[in-house]
């Protein structure tokens, strides 16, 4: 019976590995449809959005470097990363300063009261 348990365990592990491999190999977000929709959105807004931020409050660079502002906290390096700024530091990926830019950004703020 223990031998059966042992064999069952190995079979289970094999099934898990095959399932994981199949999931990685075969399961995808519907790329082409999503890509077409994403391209359509980008056409409407003229190409906007690039990094791991969805708004401008912490770091406009991490929203989109086309906005042309550079964060002065790009003062790295640190092990396995290049930023010390806590706002940028947690990002999945971020951008090194472009060599021809050396500016801080300014962002316009305008408050709209609630409906």
């Amino acid at each position: 019976m223990f031998q059966d348990s042992s064999t069952r365990l190995m079979s289970l592990i094999a099934i898990l590995v095959i399932a994981a491999g199949t999931a990685v190999g075969c399961y995808r977000q519907p790329v082409s449809a999503r890509a077409a929709d994403a391209a359509g959105f980008q056409k409407l807004v003229g190409g906007l959005g690039f990094g791991s931020s969805v708004e401008l409050s912490t770091c406009a660079v991490q929203f989109d470097p086309r906005l042309g502002v550079i964060c002065n906290a790009h003062t790295g390096p640190i092990p396995a990363g290049s930023l010390l700024c806590p706002g940028c530091g947690r990002f999945l990926f971020s951008f090194s300063p472009r060599p021809f830019e050396n500016l801080t950004g300014s962002s316009a703020t305008h408050h709209v009261p609630s409906p």
Partner: peptide, 26 residues
Amino acid sequence: VGRITLGKDNVEAVLVGMPREELHRQ
């Protein structure tokens, strides 16, 4: 492309303005 806040909780938003003709062209 500008930064704006909305509502009593000052919800952050990105305001994008594109010319009307360009919007409808695209």
